[in-house]
Design a protein around this nucleic acid. Sequence first.
DNA 1: ACTAGTGTTATATGTATATAATACACTAAT
DNA 2: ATTAGTGTATTATATACATATAACACTAGT
Lengths: 118, 118
Amino acid sequence: MKYNTTVPIYLQIMDRIKKDIVTEVLPKGERISSVRVLAEQFEVNLNTMQRACSELEREGVIFTQRGVGSFVTNDEAVLNALKEKMSGSLVKTFVSEMKELGYSENEMYEILKKELKK
Amino acid sequence: MKYNTTVPIYLQIMDRIKKDIVTEVLPKGERISSVRVLAEQFEVNLNTMQRACSELEREGVIFTQRGVGSFVTNDEAVLNALKEKMSGSLVKTFVSEMKELGYSENEMYEILKKELKK
DNA sequence: ACTAGTGTTATATGTATATAATACACTAAT
DNA sequence: ATTAGTGTATTATATACATATAACACTAGT
């Protein structure tokens, strides 16, 4: 995985895992790899991985059983809300930033259309 | 100005200034406020403001005359390229992230449409 | 009981960011 | 020449992030 240097790695890892959960690459209720394994996979220090996981737990996306492992939440409402929130954030950012650059709504459509044709 | 805690302040300031240049709030060739004044306006330390400005100069967006002040570049090609690059980056990010969340192209249109109706 | 595999915590080190305070270097107007 | 207003540079301090290394705490299977 490539890391953006301007944003903390643990946040980028959280985002990656959230995407995998939302797209059911990691289905609800499923066990996720141990922090040590994940740290190796993400090529990152154990503490950094631990931070990502504990934040994900704090957000309710995963839950943890000490000595056993971590699991994707079973709460479907949480997962639906997560997907909504992530896409909502993306489109809001896109629109507001484009407006700040002086683009009209029609231009936004056109630019999106053009990008998708690639 | 509100700052996002996850990305360096000097980068956020650079982005703000670039937007003002692209939208001609700061027209080409125009003098921009001194680093000291800007530091106060952006409620930031002089050194942080200086970093933002020197990076903007390195990118060719502004140019500086020691003892005199800093000015928006006169090079219209640079300004056009800047706007293109910024909007291109926005739409690319939007599309690729939405894909990673599992949305289809049609869904992207719909979500954008819905957001703009607000 | 033991052990291997979990999550969790702690200490030390290096780097980047941001602030604070101070000084230096140049330009234009007086 | 002096001065006020520019950009520029230096040093010190604090904080967040990431790493390295080591240890602690819990669980399940043997």
